[in-house]
Nucleic acid binder design. Structure first.
Length: 471
RNA sequence: GGCGCCGUACCCAAGUGGUAAGGGAGAGGUCUGCAAAACCUUUAUGCAGCGGUUCGAAUCCGCUCGGCGCCUCCA
């Protein structure tokens, strides 16, 4: 397996710490609002990575955090707390906001066939772990107190910012940087806040440094190490985390343990709108729900995402989603016609075996996955299989279903309805057959239109008249 | 201003120095009373432009033009 490791800025061989066991941590959502489809692209990418690893024979332990602690809208000690802002707007408590959007998030994931992490951990349930970790960092000498807050001193960390190539960047630029005057260095960040300027700050905890709440970055370090150990294989997230969040996570984790923390950093690129990136803070974002209300199937969006490599920016448009929908519908239609051909109806046992079919397509498919998750290419293999005239229908299907373990399009749920027609509709079809045999075309066309208005699509084939339910 | 990424047909998109996958859309055809579907065929002597390295470049190097992201909360 080859993967692009952001740490090395290169595609490298993936070698887990323990043979075929893979420990993987993915940065989860901050639950103060719905996820937008840009957020969801990242979770789709992580799902595909996990499924690919599993398909290639690895045992994956997947941990994801739920950020349900309020965070400041910027890294300085000012700005609005997003959770608080949201709770004020909706007239709910911060705790209710968190649980409401957590549920909404998992519902979206389910609709997109994103596998649930083995462990989903809430920040608010791990405050003790964070405090313990900050203590370790403090003991190791990487912190200072200023203005009531505990800061991480980045100047004490030799390789700080390696991931983001920060050493190559010109920090003092013309662009504004609101420097928190308590910081010794602009890149320093808060581990623990005690000075909240918000009234009625609902989320506060006691700590050795005073009553307050944790900094933004510490939760990922504390929880990932708790469940995956002090060094683990893979850490994923959106590309935006490459420059601030992840370097800070690395700095504090490695300061605490003195060892390398994560071996492979894998980042998903952004989904862009015509005008630029989609962002929570700028508003105007698209949710999965809104796509569904516009008549799309969540699988249309999954299909769209599968069509681009995870490290490429993907520009979203109605047109591209329409194309994905058409293409996916063609794919499922092909599946259904093969099922029909071998006489499998809804409810029947599918012609699927656990054993990998003995044809070259699966091996090619695996090779595509091994090449840094080349999903567009992997996806093209399914067309090749389904269209291969030399392969028996049954084998085409079982190969496609096998591939779908990674693609996650739910192809096994496709089936041909055995009988859903009302007696009246059956009569209409019979009447039409009669009219056709008498070459009474106007009558037969009228009956076809009538059935169509009831959602029944009639097609005449060489082997007789067939009907399908309009999608 | 600094850092990084990208420019492949009408659209999306893969491409690992050796002669351009796949999907949409379009065009022709087979079939058909018609329609739809299905199937077949077809659509880039060229990969932003210009130089260079090489027997050979979409792939490597340089420059130019254009797009995007980051440097500030962000998937």
């Amino acid at each position: 397996m080859k993967l692009y490791n952001s740490l090395e800025r290169n595609i490298v061989d993936f070698i887990p710490i323990n043979d075929s066991e893979v420990s993987m941590y993915t940065c989860g959502p901050t639950v103060y609002d719905y996820a937008h489809i840009g957020n969801l692209r990242t979770y789709l990418f992580e799902d595909i990575l996990r499924r690919s690893l599993e398909f290639l024979g690895y045992n994956v332990l997947h941990v994801m955090n739920i950020t349900d602690v309020g965070h400041l809208s910027d890294d300085a000690d000012d700005g609005e707390d997003k959770m608080l802002l949201s709770s004020r707007k909706k007239g709910m408590s911060v705790w209710d906001i968190a649980s409401f959007y957590t549920e909404a998030f998992f519902k979206d994931c389910e609709r997109l066939h994103i596998e649930k992490p083995h462990i989903s951990c809430k920040a608010t349930e791990h405050i003790d772990d964070m405090i313990a970790l900050i203590k370790r960092i403090e003991k190791a000498g990487y912190t200072y107190e200023a203005g009531g807050n505990i800061y991480f001193d980045t100047s004490k960390m030799p390789g700080y910012g390696k991931l983001a190539l920060l050493d190559r960047q010109n920090q003092i630029s013309g662009v504004h940087i609101d420097i928190d005057s308590n910081k010794h260095n602009p890149r320093d960040f808060v581990l623990w806040f005690t000075k909240s300027k918000f009234e009625n700050q609902a989320m506060q905890w006691d700590s050795p440094w005073g009553r307050g709440y944790p900094g933004w970055h510490i939760e990922c370090s504390a929880m990932s190490m708790k469940y995956l150990g002090e060094t683990f294989d893979i850490h994923c997230g959106g590309i935006d985390h490459l420059s601030v969040h992840h370097p800070n996570e690395i700095a504090q984790s490695e300061a605490a343990t003195g060892k390398k923390w994560v071996n492979y950093w894998i980042h998903g690129e952004f989904l862009l709108m015509d005008q630029g990136k989609m962002s929570k803070s700028k508003g105007g974002f698209i949710t999965l729900q809104s796509l569904i209300e516009d008549g799309y199937d969540p699988m249309d969006y999954r299909f769209l995402v599968l069509g681009a490599h995870y490290r490429s920016q993907l520009v979203f448009s109605t047109r591209s989603l329409d194309t994905a929908r058409t293409s996916r519908q063609n794919l499922t239609a092909k599946i259904r016609s093969l099922l029909e051909e071998i006489g499998v109806n809804c409810g029947n046992e599918l012609p699927y075996s656990q054993k990998s079919p003995d044809n070259p397509y699966i091996e090619q498919f695996k090779e595509d996955l091994r090449q840094d998750l080349n999903m567009p290419k992997a996806l093209s293999r399914i067309w090749a299989v389904l269209k291969d005239p030399d392969l028996p229908s049954r084998e085409r299907l079982s190969t496609a279903f096998e591939m779908d373990n990674v693609l996650g399009l739910g192809l096994k749920n496709e089936c041909v309805a055995a009988s859903e027609l009302t007696p009246e509709q059956k009569t209409l079809i019979e009447k039409r057959e009669e009219a056709r045999s008498l070459k009474n075309w106007s009558e037969s066309d009228r009956l076809r239109d009538e059935l169509l208005s009831q959602g029944i699509v009639i097609t005449d084939t060489p082997s007789g008249t067939k009907w399908t339910v309009k999608v």
